[in-house]
Amino acid sequence: MITRPADTLLSVDSLAVRFGGNEDAFLAVEDVSFDLRAGETLSLLGESGSGKSVTAQAIMALLPRNAAITSGRIVFAGEDLVSLPRSRTRDLCGTRMGMVFQDPLTALNPVFTVGDQIAELFRVRQGLDRRAAWLAAAEVVDAVGIPDARRRLDAYPHQFSGGMRQRLVIAMAIALKPRLLIADEPTTALDVTVQAQIMELIRDLQRETGMSLLLITHDLGVVADVTDRVAVMYAGRIVETGPVRDVYDNPAHPYTRGLMSSIPSLEESPGLLAAIPGMPPNPKERPSGCPFHPRCAFARPVCSVERPALRAMGDRRKAACHFAEEVVRLDPVS
């Protein structure tokens, strides 16, 4: 058992999530472990299908009906959520952990006013009466930067823009002052200009409340801006983790290195974008050995046979590559 800092809020340990029935079952997430301390921000970075959203759903007990946690522990504030009944985890949702979803256009219920939906939290979860809940809702909506909050509570979701709707979703997630905010691709569905505002808002809220943030994204820029640490996921596993600056400047895993060099640079001539060759593997038929080896420029015979463990590289970094020490010493990516 690894000792953890006393202020560890969330600790995911060897999590595995299986999808599907007997014949076509596959592991969407496998052996995923990470810690998140109070007030800290961790990014789960990866392509679609890498298992990052499934990890978030597992924490919030929001996994779809055909998915199940098959092993591992999710310890939140001292309680193992995996062994808790779903209804008990549901109690923690909203009050202790909040979640922001990818698509603000579908995350709000179209048939209720936004005030109704936000006040519902205060009424159902905190037992406030109608009037007090409404006032509390106005306060939260005001806090997420929606002008004229009190009047706008009577409006329906379709009367707001995409960015405003995401503010409302955030308002709902933070209304009861949770200690953990999980943001699953919070800016992906938004215009670029709005993306920055939303991330700014999340950061401000985090600064005010001291909550921890688990940010799930495929956007390398967003990660660099707001995150302390990053965990890169590939094919259901964490392949590299460490402080953002270290991982970005000197990736220790060839996949991370590929991601970094795919960022177009303004200084260099605008030629071809560097892309990682090939496609992420189908989760039902992942390659043997290191799942990244068919696409890896550094692959050697051992890579197709033996799966590299996630091992420590210095005291704050980990990487799952047989040749991590070589990769990390390569010239920094531009």
Binding site: L62, R90, G94, F101, V169
Partner: peptide
């Protein structure tokens, strides 16, 4: 999903 994430029964 949002409603569930709000912790509603």
């Amino acid at each position: 999903q949002t409603a569930r994430a709000k912790g509603l029964r």
